[in-house]
Simulated scan of single mutants.
Amino acid sequence: MKESKERYGSPEIYKELQRKGYSCSKRMVERLMKIGNIRSNIVKKFTVSKPGKVWCFDITYIEIDSR
């Protein structure tokens, strides 16, 4: 499963095992992952390299004239 870049969680590992002909349940995969301290590697898609480089705001609180 190296081609997964260690990003598989229990649902994907379960599907992969089923495709390869192994008989197991999703719950068993979850338990074995927990026992083995195996977690998926979650990759954040949006990162900022320096503080103050990206700004965002929410304008939902601005009152408008509704004439």
Rank of each mutant, 00 (worst) to 15 (best):
K45Y: 02
K20L: 10
V48I: 05
C24K: 06
E12D: 13
I38W: 04
K15M: 00
V43A: 10
I38C: 06
P11Y: 12
P51V: 06
S4I: 10
E63S: 12
S23E: 14
V43S: 11
N37A: 02
Y8R: 07
N41D: 15
K50C: 02
N41G: 03
P51T: 12
R7F: 03
G36P: 12
K2I: 09
E16S: 01
G36E: 12
L32Q: 13
E3D: 15
V43W: 05
T60Q: 11
P11H: 06
K26Y: 00
S49K: 14
F57H: 11
K26V: 05
V48F: 00
D65Y: 09
G21A: 01
E63C: 07
K2T: 11
T60G: 08
E16G: 00
L32K: 13
S23M: 07
G9V: 05
I59V: 10
W55P: 06
T47V: 07
S40L: 03
E3G: 07
K44C: 14
K44Y: 13
V48M: 00
K26M: 02
S66M: 08
S49F: 02
V48Y: 00
K44F: 06
F46W: 14
F57C: 05
K15S: 01
E63Y: 14
S10M: 03
D58M: 05
W55D: 09
S66A: 06
S23H: 07
I42Y: 05
K20P: 00
R27W: 07
R67N: 03
I35Y: 03
R67Q: 04
S4N: 15
N37L: 04
C24F: 01
G9S: 05
V54P: 07
F46C: 12
I62N: 08
D65H: 13
G21D: 08
E16T: 11
S49E: 12
K5E: 12
K20Q: 10
K53I: 03
S23T: 15
E12I: 10
E12K: 15
E16M: 03
C24Y: 03
I35V: 14
S40F: 06
R7E: 15
I38K: 08
V43I: 15
R7C: 14
T47C: 03
C56M: 10
N41T: 15
L17H: 04
E12Y: 06
I59R: 10
S25Q: 05
K45A: 03
E30N: 00
K20G: 01
Q18Y: 05
S23N: 13
I64L: 10
G9A: 11
K45T: 08
Y8C: 09
M28F: 07
